[in-house]
Amino acid sequence: MLVLVALPMVMRNPYYLGIMVFMGIYSLITIGLSLLMGYAGQISLGHAAFFATGAYTSGILTTKAHLSPLPAFLAAIVLTACIAFLIGIPTLRLKGHYLAMATLGFGQIVYVALNASVDFTGGPSGFGEIPRIALGNLVVESQLARYCLVWALVVIVLLFSLNLIHSRVGRALRSIHSSELAANAMGVNTSKYKIQVFVLSAIYASIAGSLYAHFVTFISPGSFDLEFSILLVTMVVVGGMANVWGALLGTVLLTLLPEFLRGFKDYDILIYGSTLLLIMIFMPEGLFGLVKKLRSVRGRM
């Protein structure tokens, strides 16, 4: 927490703050995904679609219906939650790769729809002029203001999620992860919990999407493609699925890595791929697994 507050004082440069802003936006989604993947054991390759729902709902309502950002933001959350609920019921009955394919398919359908409904979404060329977030006279325009807003939300979402994990729901989720059959037998309503956490993670993604729309002020389907869904899952797995902090760590790494690699020109793609590979080969539990191991080694000494 201290670091978060201290950071902007050290790093005034809007370039770095800008990267931190995107990092915060991604963190919102990956925290939710880690609840879904790490705790409930369900994979989703379609979360870009919920990010898109948030961004497009906010974008369209504020530019075309001239709503102010806050009600649009809430509308986005409600809409995303409804979609996630409806999709979740049949989808979460599937398992393993079938679930992966179903969520991926859903994400692609949304992507195709964004491209095809030109009158509504602007089609493949997207649309711009999305207003910035304003609280009274205070317009969130500078990178610093954005930074504060995003990371404040990240902290809220994080605290909420940590609380959830240590509650009854969290225990139920973990029981689903270790064995859904056993959990069911013990009287845990597994499908209810799975859908709840799915909807929650979708809501997080929607919040992130709304922020993205208002910050970048221009959206097009390209930002919400399968590649982005895969990037999100990669962040969670690389960081370490077993823990929300792991997801955060993965997000930090994979947001910074491409910026670090700018100097390497075209070779960045090779270095990026190798880094992922090495992490997964040598730290199958993700970065956070390593952190945990180091700690236990220290503890033993």
Binding site: V238, G273, S274, L276, L277, M280, I281, P284
Partner: peptide, 20 residues
């Protein structure tokens, strides 16, 4: 899941190699 990510990383490398 880590296998999935490994094959994704592999595909990034193969794609990058092909680009060069």
């Amino acid at each position: 899941l880590s296998l999935i990510i490994i094959t994704i990383a592999g595909s990034i490398l193969l794609k990058g190699g092909a680009m060069f």
